[in-house]
């Protein structure tokens, strides 16, 4: 079945099996391996990409459901090679350890900032609730998003 959609700004026309998930097409047919499969059931968020600027779990979307839509993956965050503010903040704030959750975290954070450029801490926490990380305890991820949004407070993360 033919699938027409846009990925990272580029129009694509692909022959795609009905049962392919968006994640499979991105990784296998387009070689965009940034999005990862950490659970395949919508729980971990490692596969998060944007569809028309909304964060979705690409493991739960059939590829053909993206017909006519615009998909953005982590590879599309720095199209001209210049890092997005979120990417820079993740690097500088120590928000990356093993890095397996990072593409999904970045895309969820990106979707949030597109919608809400100055989110509160609570909004960041809820926006990233569907992205699990086992390495960082989320502490520096929160800081990085605040930093990229320009809402970072000096000092500690959050007072109880």
């Amino acid at each position: 079945m033919e699938l027409r959609f846009t990925v990272n700004g580029q129009k694509q026309v692909l022959e795609v099996e009905p049962q392919a998930r968006l994640l499979d097409v991105l990784r296998e047919q387009l070689g965009l391996t940034g999005a990862k499969e950490g659970c395949g059931e919508g729980e971990c968020g490692a596969c998060t990409v944007l569809v028309d600027n909304l964060a979705v779990n690409s493991c739960l979307v059939l590829a053909h459901q993206a017909r006519g839509r615009s998909v953005t993956t982590v590879e599309g965050l720095a199209p001209s090679g210049k890092l997005d503010a979120l990417q820079q903040a993740f690097i500088q704030k120590g928000a990356i350890q093993c890095g397996y959750c990072t593409p999904g975290m970045l895309m969820s954070a990106k979707a949030l900032l597109l919608r809400k450029p100055k989110p509160t801490e609570e909004e960041i926490r809820m926006a990233l609730a569907g992205n699990l990380c086992r390495c960082t305890g989320y502490v520096n991820i929160l800081r990085a998003v605040q930093d990229a949004a320009g809402t970072a407070e000096s000092g500690e993360v959050r007072k109880a």
């Binding site: 919508g42 968020g45 998060t48 569809v51 909304l54 964060a55 979705v56 779990n57 739960l60 979307v61 969820s108 979707a111 949030l112 809820m126 926006a127 609730a129 569907g130 992205n131």
Partner: peptide, 9 residues
């Protein structure tokens, strides 16, 4: 319901 990603779909 679920997470942002779930609610978006």
């Amino acid at each position: 319901v679920g997470s942002v990603q779930i609610r978006n779909r």
